[in-house]
């Protein structure tokens, strides 16, 4: 589904990704962990199409297509979803109106008819219940005045509405208490399917108790330096990253 080969990306002349490889197959859940500043959000941003980053080498294909050639909105319509580490507040733009426009753009792209107002509202009710998002939030301005937890749940709500094939969750668990974490994880799990893949960026093993990954990768200095199964996350939780850094230094 997603194939990243030797990806190099820089911002303002700083090389952040330095030869990153990753292969995600349909239905898989990949967790990406790594110390602060190692390039996790950069990877997520590059995949979503943020234009500030310059890709200096490497390829990314998504469902056989060259992802790097696509505008951000085309990537979204093709089925990529990024849950932002820091969701943006957009005063004056109603959450629901914008989402309606987005859902219909995505549907049109996929050859589906636009939803009627009634169908759309039904979908909103169903999906906001999934993440226990207060219905009133849906009518407010995008993320404006939302608590940290509400913002993260709003991201998962949007994901549920847009039904992506590949969802990248950038620290969706940060700043959530256990209850909120469980809600978010349930929302994600409800969406797992053999066709849909997830890349879950996190600092905490805790999330992976709820969203059980098929693979765990460690991203360090712009490269995936270690990969394993969910046991690797437990090991990292216990021992920290120093041993990984040492391994990387001697490699």
């Amino acid at each position: 589904m997603l194939s990243i080969h030797n990806l190099h990306a820089q911002i303002e002349q700083n090389e952040i990704l330095r030869g990153l490889n990753l292969e995600v197959k349909p239905g898989e859940v990949h967790a990406i962990m790594g110390p602060n500043g190692s390039g996790k959000s950069t990877l997520a941003s590059v995949l979503a199409g943020r234009e500030e980053y310059a890709i200096t080498a490497g390829e990314v294909t998504f469902q056989g297509k060259d992802l790097l050639e696509m505008a951000p909105e085309i990537r979204a319509r093709e089925g990529i979803f990024l849950a932002f580490q820091y969701p943006v507040e957009i005063p004056g733009v109603s959450n629901i109106n914008f989402l309606k426009a987005a859902v219909n753009e995505v549907r049109t792209h996929r050859g589906l008819p636009a939803l009627t107002a009634k169908e759309f509202l039904q979908l909103v009710n169903e999906k906001s219940a999934l993440v226990e998002l207060d219905g009133r939030l849906a009518n407010r301005s995008v993320n404006e005045g939302f608590s940290g937890g509400e913002k993260k749940r709003n991201e998962i709500f949007q994901m549920a509405m847009l039904e992506p094939t590949l969802a990248i969750l950038d620290e969706t668990d940060s700043g959530l208490d256990i209850d909120a974490l469980r809600i978010v994880a349930n929302g994600v799990n409800a969406m797992r399917s053999p066709q849909r893949s997830f890349v879950v960026i996190t600092h905490y093993q805790r999330l992976l108790d709820y969203i059980v990954p098929d693979f765990v990768h460690v991203l360090y200095k712009g490269r995936i330096v270690k990969s394993g199964t969910k046991e690797l996350a437990l090991e990292l939780e216990e021992k920290g990253y120093d041993w990984i850094k040492e391994e990387a230094a001697t490699a």
């Binding site: 979503a48 199409g49 943020r50 234009e51 505008a71 951000p72 909105e73 990537r75 979204a76 319509r77 979803f81 990024l82 932002f84 969701p87 943006v88 957009i90 005063p91 004056g92 733009v93 914008f98 989402l99 426009a101 987005a102 859902v103 753009e105 995505v106 792209h109 301005s141 995008v142 949007q158 847009l162």
Partner: peptide
């Protein structure tokens, strides 16, 4: 706000529409 434009585009809105949506919000106030 370019961050907001990227956010809207990452949800599937075309760039022109994303810009116009923000302008609309600005004027509607």
């Amino acid at each position: 706000d370019e961050q907001a434009i990227f956010y809207l585009r990452a949800r599937g809105l075309g760039e022109d529409n994303a810009r116009r949506l923000l302008t609309t919000a600005f004027i509607l106030e």
